[in-house]
Design a protein around this nucleic acid. Structure first.
Length: 361
DNA sequence: AACTCGGGGCG
DNA sequence: CGCCCAGAGTT
């Protein structure tokens, strides 16, 4: 049995496309900074679209814009990015989240430098072979960068297409069901503008709580007519979150240097910097750090840090000590005292930055 | 197919 | 406080 509210005809999709493009010309976002510009080379414009697509994964436009400007200033070309140190790339990404994106982007730039002479080719399969680029981002580069008819199905497009077609399918089936419709839409006129148009429409009109009274399609929207707007697209099944406690220890010596180290775990916050932390409360300071004299021990307020799948409950301890040692062994691991000017140049986790604000503010 | 990866904004 | 945002890699 069909999960569509009603069958969708080709005429319906063509009419929607026509009106969408008219809407875009008048109301679309035409000033996004990664839009191709004449004072950049064609290769740079493609690079900008690539970069923006990566930054925009699960991240809103307003958040991305300042990061984008900073990034292209530091890394103006793909080859410049490829030749840069990963530490600099992560620093430019600091606070944006999903740090695997930065590592994949850096690896991708080296791949493009070595395999494609520093220029992204107009080849969907080749683009998709670049680290960090999946079907959606590859299609976005093909359509927006090269003006080729490739369909994207990101969150915005899925929401728009689900409502236009009245697809009630659950999240997993939805993408497969909508892909043929998405391709049909993209294969009409102005592929690059269409891609931007449908995303702008999804981001500004056909939102989660859509502005149907201003919508050009309200008279023909099957989802609106049958009052299913709140039900389409179907909600995602919420993942169960874990609660984890974290006990960071901020050890500050008489010169104001802090114990600081780079994460090496393969899981979260890979390659980023943080304070040493324990999995339980620090019981005996003198026992854990024999060669230091504790001047002051301050419990900072506990706070929460939320990730997609983890709630961190953080109970920080700030210990001011005197010692002649340049490093401290804690739980069998060696941590070095680091001057403020140094650690501020490295990309840190969000809780670490919050703690730095707390002790310096 | 399910799970993992951040952080910000908004109602 | 819950949900979503221009998703992709791993298992």
């Amino acid at each position: 049995m069909s999960l569509f509210l009603a069958p969708t005809t080709g005429e319906t999709l063509r009419a929607f496309h026509q009106q969408l493009m008219q809407w875009f010309d008048e109301h679309g976002r035409h000033d996004l900074p990664w839009k191709p510009q004449d004072h950049y080379t064609p290769a740079q414009n493609i690079y900008h679209i690539w970069l923006s697509e990566i930054m925009l994964q699960q991240t809103q436009v307003a958040t991305v814009i300042p990061y984008f400007f900073n990034f292209i200033e530091q890394f103006p070309t793909i080859n410049a990015l490829a030749d840069a140190e990963i530490e600099r790339v992560l620093k430019a990404w600091e606070g944006l989240g999903y740090y695997a994106r930065a590592r994949n982007l850096h690896q991708g730039a080296q791949y493009v430098r070595d395999q494609f002479n520093g220029e992204i080719p107009c080849d969907f399969a080749a683009i998709e072979s670049i680290k960090g680029i999946g079907r959606t981002t590859a299609a976005a580069i093909m359509s927006q960068g090269f003006n080729r008819p490739f369909a994207i199905l990101d969150g915005n497009v899925k929401r728009v297409m689900a409502r236009v077609t009245g697809a009630m399918h659950p999240e997993k089936q939805l993408e497969k069901v909508l892909l043929p419709f998405a391709y049909m839409m993209s294969s009409q006129a102005r592929p690059n503008d269409y891609t931007q148009a449908v995303m702008d429409f999804g981001a500004t009109v056909c939102t989660k709580q859509p502005k149907c009274t201003t919508c050009f399609w309200q008279a023909r929207c099957i989802t609106l007519q049958q009052q299913q707007v709140a039900m389409i697209p179907a909600k995602k099944i919420k993942a169960v979150k874990k609660d984890l406690e974290l006990f960071p220890i901020i050890v500050e010596n008489q010169r104001g240097e802090l114990l600081f180290h780079q994460r090496t775990t393969e899981t979260i916050w890979h390659n980023l910097y943080e304070f040493p932390h324990l999995s339980s409360h620090l019981l005996d300071i003198e026992e854990m750090m024999p060669n230091v004299t504790v001047i002051e021990s301050i419990s900072l307020p506990r706070f929460k840090h939320v990730l997609t799948h983890i709630n961190f409950h953080i109970e920080p301890l700030w210990i001011k000590v005197t010692t002649d040692d340049p490093s401290i062994t804690l739980n069998g691991q060696c941590y070095a005292f680091t001057p403020r000017a140094i650690y501020e140049t490295y990309a840190k986790t969000k809780p670490t930055n919050d703690l730095l604000d707390a002790i310096h503010g």
